[in-house]
């Protein structure tokens, strides 16, 4: 691989994985740290031509304030949606424990 890495560390990758809510394994951290370093080294080239006076493009086809008519239309059926959820109770999504996170 000709591209030089940017020096992203294993600890940084572990931090990014936590932010991304990915419980990655130790082995994955080793592999990803090496690969991401190489990939970032390759993609960092964008900085060579990104002069300050060039405006960014977020979208190839700029459209603004696209709103639908303010009329009531049918939405998805609640029971059908909940049937596809991992867990439901009393007509709602049931979530894992959210209180006492620190306990």
């Amino acid at each position: 691989m000709p591209e030089a890495g940017v020096g992203i560390t294993r600890d940084e990758v572990a931090h990014l994985a936590r932010l991304s809510r990915l419980a990655v394994t130790e082995e994955e951290l080793d592999v990803f740290a090496g690969q991401l370093d190489v990939i970032l080294g390759a993609v960092a080239r964008v900085q060579e031509v990104a002069a300050a006076d060039i405006p960014p493009t977020t979208h190839a086809v700029p459209l603004t304030n696209v709103l639908r008519p303010d009329v009531v239309t049918p939405c998805l059926d609640r029971d059908e949606v909940l049937a596809a959820a991992p867990a439901a109770e009393d007509g709602r999504f049931r979530v894992p424990r959210i209180l006492d996170e620190e306990a």
Partner: peptide, 26 residues
């Protein structure tokens, strides 16, 4: 997973301008 982590890095504070911002200029 690799791309989620890469994207999280490129969008994170301190790296955003250098990576995602530069890519949008390209």
């Amino acid at each position: 997973k690799r791309r989620i982590i890469l994207g999280t890095y490129a969008l994170s504070s301190g790296y955003y301008d250098a990576y995602y911002g530069s890519a949008q200029k390209v």
